[in-house]
């Protein structure tokens, strides 16, 4: 009961700040749709349908755009923790009788809500462009589940990094360096089969690949055995990154009393 009150109160903080920063909200919602229209639209003509397995490249790219959005939001998800750490507000929060986990879980709750809203916008824009998920309305729900799992994984990873680095400068240097390779070392915009062998091996170790694979099957092919398999791999990756995130957060607060 108290735990839910803490999580809701902290989530309210993020939501109020987001609603006050209207330009931030507007561009956050529009950005993925713009990517879908311009990026997928431009590349579509240059893609060989035999390589990507479909002549509808926009449908192929929808899961990639969703993953791209979640990667970008993973970085912003960790920013409040980073700034609370640097401004001292984290200490104020830790002097209150709240559970440490509330600080992390509230961010997951907020971020899953935010990412889900963006995914709905992406799917609506895709619908306007003629993309209808082959798995139907239930498939849309499954896409939202895959998004939530990927959000959990990437938010945990970004928060672990925020705890580990000495300053926000280092955080942005590392995330700026890693974000695009993380995306391109996955099946976001080209299938694994079209990659060089070494790149395919790296991509298979990338949690993004499994989220995208599950979503792509749901959009292009409908329900198949590959969906639960990919979601299962995503659950494992999320659990691992959550463990790393929790360990780093515990380290961050280890100088403090638990």
């Amino acid at each position: 009961m108290m735990w839910s009150q803490e999580v809701l109160a902290l989530s309210r903080r993020w939501l109020l700040i987001l609603l006050r920063e209207r330009l931030n909200l507007l561009f956050s919602v529009l950005q993925p749709a713009v990517w879908l229209v311009f990026f997928a639209g431009a590349l579509g003509g240059a893609m060989d349908p035999r390589a990507v397995g479909t002549d509808d490249y926009i449908a192929f790219a929808v899961p990639g755009i969703i993953a791209f959005t979640v990667v970008g939001n993973g970085v912003t998800a960790a920013m409040p923790l980073l700034f609370d750490k640097e401004t001292g507000y984290l200490d104020k929060l830790l002097s209150m009788p709240i559970r440490r986990s509330s600080l992390i879980v509230s961010r997951f709750v907020f971020q899953v809500g935010m990412n889900s809203a963006q995914v709905v916008v992406i799917l609506l824009v895709a619908l306007v462009l003629g993309v209808r998920p082959a798995s139907g309305p239930l498939g849309v729900l499954a896409i939202l589940v895959a998004t939530a799992l990927l959000t959990l994984a990437l938010t945990a990873a970004a928060m672990a990094l925020a705890c580990a680095v000495p300053s926000h400068g280092t955080f942005f240097a590392i995330t700026g360096f890693a974000s695009l390779p993380l995306l391109f070392m996955s099946n976001a915009f080209v299938p694994l089969s079209a990659m060089p062998g070494w790149m395919e091996t790296v991509a298979r170790a990338n949690p993004l690949t499994y989220a995208i694979e599950a979503m792509r099957l749901l959009v292009l092919d409908g329900w198949s055995g590959g969906v639960p398999l990919s979601l299962g791999a995503l659950v494992v990756a999320s659990a691992l990154l959550l463990a790393v995130g929790s360990w780093q957060f515990a380290r961050q607060t280890s100088e403090r009393i638990a």
Binding site: Q5, E6, L8, A9, L10, R12, R13, L16, I17, R20, E21, P80, F83, D84, T87, Y89, L93, M96, P97, I98
Partner: peptide
């Protein structure tokens, strides 16, 4: 910085819930 976009009342209510 962590709450400058909140009103004084909102910040106080949030911390009341945390307490």
């Amino acid at each position: 910085m962590g709450y400058y976009m909140l009103t004084g009342r909102e910040k106080t209510e949030i911390e009341a819930a945390l307490y």
